[in-house]
Design a protein around this nucleic acid. Structure first.
Lengths: 166, 166
DNA sequence: CTTACCTGTCTTGACATCGAGATATCGATG
DNA sequence: CATCGATATCTCGATGTCAAGACAGGTAAG
């Protein structure tokens, strides 16, 4: 069974036989799969009247555990967006009543963003549906394959997660 | 060795012990890796005075082989963007002299976008550097691991590439 | 205690993308 | 050959994101 990336690599091989394009087999698939995943997730969130970016921020707070509170700095590192983007996201989530901003008692420059009860209810429902949908998408893989895949991906990810300059 | 996703899964397990969050081990890694990859690619393209979106379009044309010509419709399906986005991209690439629009002799509704010589030179140089950089990023994996990883990713990708509704 | 640098958050301006709709043409059907 | 749905491309308005910089508060060294 071939996918689009197989066709892509064949085309490159024909056009640039001087190059070894083997890395594309892994990394182009990662990018394309991520793109498809985004769409699938968007569909799940839409059923909860939620956007992907809202989900990203709310889950980061939810994962933190009680009192569901993180600084904007920690949120932007958790979601891999810039500070300007995070300010904008928090503004809108606050308007929607899903989070609330408060001062950081330890650092007068700082702010703490806390999940409201309404926010927690919303994110819990959406997350449960998301995990279900993702399990479907993994349906073609055996449990052993899933572990193998996760381990291989981890070894690619570790350099990025340990060295922010990579 | 743990990565951010291991920490993420542990946090979810502590907060939502009622859910089986095992799918995240694979799919969250795919998304996060794709995000890091985007940044790495951006850095490579910047060395060629090129943006990621330019590269995406130009490589699609380059891969097509002589005469390096595709319709906007084929280009948008190859790059997974909407038609409005593709119109905008072609406009700017045409202004930059990297592609040229012409009529489709077979279909009066249609347009054919062709790579100029300048465009071909630019994309060939950037692509060679990109493959080199990607090979570095795969450095931690043995050739066998790379094949395994590529095969597992393919099996996740096939449903999307065969059934556009997925 | 004060100078100089670093950190955390927010502001601003530019811009690429999306989504819906408009227009023109194709192709199949009767 | 007329009709009608499908297809190809483009237009337009709204919006989320980024990059760079502003600003206030922290932090360490002299």
């Amino acid at each position: 069974m071939k996918d689009e990336v197989d066709r892509l690599v064949e085309a490159w091989h024909a056009e640039r036989p001087d190059l070894d394009v083997e890395p594309l087999h892994v990394l182009s698939r990662v990018s394309r799969l991520a793109r498809h995943l985004d769409r699938a997730r968007r569909a799940v969130f839409a059923a909860h009247g939620m956007e992907s970016w809202e989900f990203d921020v709310l889950t980061a707070l939810r994962r933190a555990g009680p009192p569901y509170e993180l600084s904007p700095g920690r949120l932007l590192r958790a979601t891999l967006v810039t500070s300007g983007t995070m300010t904008n996201r928090i503004d809108r989530l606050e308007s929607a009543g899903l989070v609330r901003r408060g001062p950081d008692p330890q650092d007068k420059r700082g702010v703490l963003v806390r999940l409201t009860d309404a926010g927690r209810t919303r994110v819990d429902a959406a997350f449960a549906d998301l995990v279900d949908r993702e399990r479907e998408l993994l349906g073609s893989l055996s449990p052993g394959d899933r572990r193998t895949l996760a381990n291989l991906l981890r070894s690619l990810l570790v350099p990025f997660d340990t060295d922010p300059a990579a």
